[in-house]
């Protein structure tokens, strides 16, 4: 048994929405058919997205910070959406733990989306079926793609490499190591769904120095500074000389 999942580093996420945009681009053009939009160029565009980046402000002005919070299907181990599906259209793959919807069997009753504590399923009103993150199952096993591109679209798009993809049941995988070493956690464990996606916390890096440590500049730093200054001067001279 393996369980593929995403590990999202909130410390690195800059909220650029590249993951969501690339997800939409791939999955609209991919094997699962379009993610339909209503009024895409109108006043209130709406549409199906597998991945949404929400933004939160923490603290009080002027001491505020921004948290960018991407959220997509957690591919839960004990997925409540699969249990409640009346047709068996929602299922969890045994081989890799991905939760998928068979669009040909879905009757569009929306019951699975009610059973999901995370709100990670979105109803496509045009096709009348429930849609959700497929963990790019049509990419990760796709032999037409070069091997380094056999990853979910969101992971490939992330410019800060905040997203890691891997088997969280394999202790040697990159994802498992990230969870272990960077204090990965799950969302709402209280709901009992056993989500597989993990988040790495936003860290506040602080260095504590005593006063005597601050006033003395180490010799190494002084040497480096001197070198940099002389290097700058050299470049300047080269540039200015005829």
């Amino acid at each position: 048994m393996s369980q593929l999942a995403l590990v999202i580093d909130l410390n690195k996420c800059v909220g650029c929405h590249a993951c969501a945009t690339n997800c939409k681009a791939w999955n609209t053009a991919g094997e699962f058919g379009p993610l339909t939009d209503t009024e895409p160029y109108g006043k209130q565009p709406e549409g199906v997205w597998f991945n949404r980046v929400q933004t939160y402000e923490i603290g009080k002005y002027p001491k505020t910070e921004v948290i960018n919070f991407p959220k997509s299907c957690m591919h839960c181990k004990n997925a409540p959406c699969v249990d409640v599906c009346p047709t068996g259209a929602s299922y969890k793959r045994e081989e890799d733990g991905i939760v998928l919807v068979n669009y040909d069997d879905c009757i569009g009753c929306k019951y699975c989306s009610w059973a999901c504590p995370y709100g990670c399923r979105e109803f496509d009103g045009h096709e009348g079926v429930m849609k959700k993150c497929t963990l790019c199952v049509d990419r990760i096993y796709n032999e037409d793609l070069p091997e380094e591109e056999r990853k979910p679209a969101c992971v490939l798009a992330c410019p800060t490499r905040a997203r890691t993809f891997g088997d969280i049941d394999d202790p040697e995988s990159e994802a498992s190591k990230a969870i272990r070493e960077k204090h990965g956690y799950r969302l709402l464990p209280e709901a009992g769904a056993g989500p597989s996606n993990h988040y790495l916390p936003q860290r506040k890096v602080k260095v504590e120095l005593d006063e005597d440590e601050i006033c003395v500049k180490p010799l190494a730093i002084l040497t480096i500074e001197k070198k940099i200054t002389s290097y700058r001067e050299q470049i300047f001279d080269d540039f200015m000389s005829p």
């Binding site: 565009p45 949404r52 980046v53 939160y56 923490i58 989306s113 979105e122 709402l188």
Partner: peptide
């Protein structure tokens, strides 16, 4: 919301619902 985001911050304010202001999750 602190439990939802697993962050022990006293003031957490939603700034953006993600990609479009209203969607299935804000309406349903």
């Amino acid at each position: 919301i602190k439990n939802a985001l697993v962050m022990n911050e006293p003031n957490i304010k939603l700034m953006s619902t993600g990609t479009s202001y209203e969607h299935y999750n804000t309406k349903e």
